[in-house]
């Protein structure tokens, strides 16, 4: 187990190195420096700025500096807000996004798995078709369509919740639901498929021949194998929820990292954008590692 985790952690090093290198040079490919766009900057101030950010050194030198700082977990200063570092910005905004994403993923799992199990118990019944159609709708109605529609209905017409903001618990419901709904739908489909696949196996017949009740068969014999597809989907789902948060945080005006990332992209705040990209990559890589561990724990055929 420890060896497995250690080996996987070793594998993430080259991945993160590639990500860092790619983003660094991609940004350097931009014609002109980051301060060229701002017309009012006098040349001497520009020079000072470039010196402050180390842009006067050769590119390769800058690259080594950057990597060196990365090793210490330092993502550098923001181009846009000279007095704030990327680390500070992430520390200030990420908790909000984490809460939003965690709630969305939690909701998606609870509703998706429940709906999927119910659908799998009576395949091809009216209930199954209803659940499947609703999931298809969840998959095809993207967040940026659902979000505004939900605001229109629940906030502006029914006035149940606020249209935007992130102050009290009620403010969390609509964004988390909007973000989670598509994943709930996918999870429901995967759960249904996984459960049905297991329920058709010979060993379920063995369990029935042993006199196990339906509840016992679902909980003890089917769930573990049936949820494997859902677990392997959690990696992509987390990545999706992460990018989904860009839209949700923009629509609902939530002060999270996603919205901050989009704003930085618009402002061409390159250090901020690269810093956040690297941060996201680390996040996803570690989440995937977590998913792999859960998968191995669930599936005895996979060895450490």
């Amino acid at each position: 187990m420890f060896r497995f985790i250690a080996a996987r952690l070793m594998q993430t090093v080259p991945v993160l190195f590639v990500v860092a290198t790619l983003t660094f040079f991609m940004v350097r490919l931009v014609p002109g420096g980051p301060f060229d766009a701002e017309r009012n900057v006098p040349p001497e101030i520009k020079r000072e700025l470039e010196a402050y950010y180390g842009l006067d050194k050769p590119v390769f030198h800058q690259y080594l500096d950057y990597l060196g700082r990365l090793l210490h977990g330092d993502l550098g200063p923001s181009y846009k807000y000279a007095n704030r570092s990327v680390n500070e910005m992430i520390a200030a905004t990420f908790p909000v996004s984490l809460q939003l994403g965690g709630m969305a993923l939690g909701l998606a799992l609870i509703f998706g798995v429940t709906a999927g199990i119910i659908a799998s118990l009576r395949p091809n019944s009216a209930l199954d078709y209803t659940a499947s159609s609703i999931s298809m709708m969840g998959i095809c109605l993207p967040t940026f369509v659902l979000g505004p529609l939900f605001i229109l209905v629940f906030a502006l017409n029914l006035r149940w919740v606020n249209a935007s903001g992130w102050f009290d618990a009620a403010d969390r419901i609509l964004p988390a639901a909007t973000l989670g709904i598509a994943y709930a739908a996918s999870i429901a489909r995967l759960t249904r498929g996984g459960m049905l696949e297991i329920l058709n196996q010979d060993f379920i017949r063995t369990a029935r021949a042993k006199g196990a009740s339906s509840t016992r068969i679902i909980l003890r014999h089917t769930l573990r194998g049936g949820l494997l597809p859902v677990v392997s989907y959690l990696g992509p789902a987390a990545a999706g929820i992460l990018t989904g948060s860009f839209v949700i945080e923009t629509i609902f005006q939530i002060p999270g990292l996603g919205r901050h990332f989009v704003t930085s992209a618009f402002n061409r705040d390159f250090t901020m954008v690269t810093g956040i990209v690297i941060f996201y990559a680390v996040l996803i890589v570690f989440f995937n590692l977590l998913v792999d561990i859960v998968q191995i724990w669930l599936n005895p055929k996979l060895k450490f």
């Binding site: 990209v277 996803i284 890589v285």
Partner: peptide
């Protein structure tokens, strides 16, 4: 496999910003 694990939309955004 490695590429699968990366948040690609983020890279597309980066590409759009840069270029």
């Amino acid at each position: 496999d490695i590429l699968y694990a990366l948040p690609f939309t983020v890279f597309v955004i980066l590409l759009m910003v840069v270029f």
